[in-house]
């Protein structure tokens, strides 16, 4: 719970900066607020606002945002059980699916704690992100540069800490390392959002590699 609270605090600060940046770039005050409620996915929101601010067409910004968010499809298959059953739960839970809530759920060993972590993190982040965005949009740039606080390092580090236990499994570790290399290598070449999807190829190669070894183990 303390871990989730820390993440919520950091997300609030990033939300403040998102609201402030959006309004400073000439968008109406309600734009970042509407985005944060109906989209609720930080990376795609920053991209959407950035493209509009630089003169891009809203439809192009929308398509770019969708591409960045396509990763939620595999996320949903992986942690669907943590959301629970029943339509209301599924609808609300799906909307709360973000990188951090998925990572928190994956880091838990048993189903009950997966569920509790997913919901606590999802609800907490939704509340703190939106509160931050409202503050930033109305209050302006109190926090203009979150990089000065190292928040850009905090989020990857937090996700890494949550993912690390899963990497104890050799097959997962191989696939993840390969996927990470693929993603970084193709980032300069393809649109944002695509690199992490291409990282899934790491799963295929990981399996191809592991097949001969299991065979030899059977033989020996």
């Amino acid at each position: 719970m303390r871990d989730i609270a820390l993440l919520c605090a950091a997300v609030t600060v990033v939300g403040v900066s998102f609201g402030a940046i959006a309004v400073a770039s000439g968008l109406a005050v309600w734009v970042p607020m509407l985005l944060s409620v109906v989209v609720f996915a930080g990376a795609s929101q920053f991209m959407f606002v950035g493209l509009i601010a630089s003169g891009g067409h809203p439809v192009a910004a929308m398509v770019a945002g969708l591409l960045v968010n396509a990763r939620h499809v595999p996320f949903g298959f992986a942690i669907g059980d943590a959301i629970g059953s029943g339509w209301l739960r599924r609808i609300a839970g799906s909307h709360l699916m973000v990188d951090e809530s998925v990572a928190f759920a994956l880091a838990q060993p048993d189903p009950a704690r997966r569920r509790a972590s997913f919901w606590a993190c999802g609800v907490g982040l939704f509340a703190s992100w939106n509160a931050g965005v409202v503050l930033g949009a109305l209050g302006g740039s109190v926090v203009s540069d979150t990089d000065a606080f190292g928040l850009d390092a905090a989020f990857p580090a937090a996700l890494m800490a949550l993912v690390l236990p899963s990497l104890r499994d050799p097959d997962t570790r191989r696939a993840a390392l390969l996927g990470a290399v693929i993603a970084v290598a193709v980032t300069p070449l393809v649109p944002p959002g695509v690199p992490v999807l291409l990282a899934l190829a790491g799963l295929l190669v990981g399996r191809v590699w592991s097949t001969p070894r299991t065979k030899s183990e059977v033989v020996s």
Binding site: P74, L159, L167, A180, V196
Partner: peptide, 21 residues
């Protein structure tokens, strides 16, 4: 298992790209 692995691969790729790019 494959689904869980793919989520880990995605998160690892997110960490790597957010880290160095």
């Amino acid at each position: 298992r494959l689904m869980a692995m793919s989520a880990v691969v995605l998160l690892a790729a997110l960490v790597a790209t957010a880290d160095v790019m």
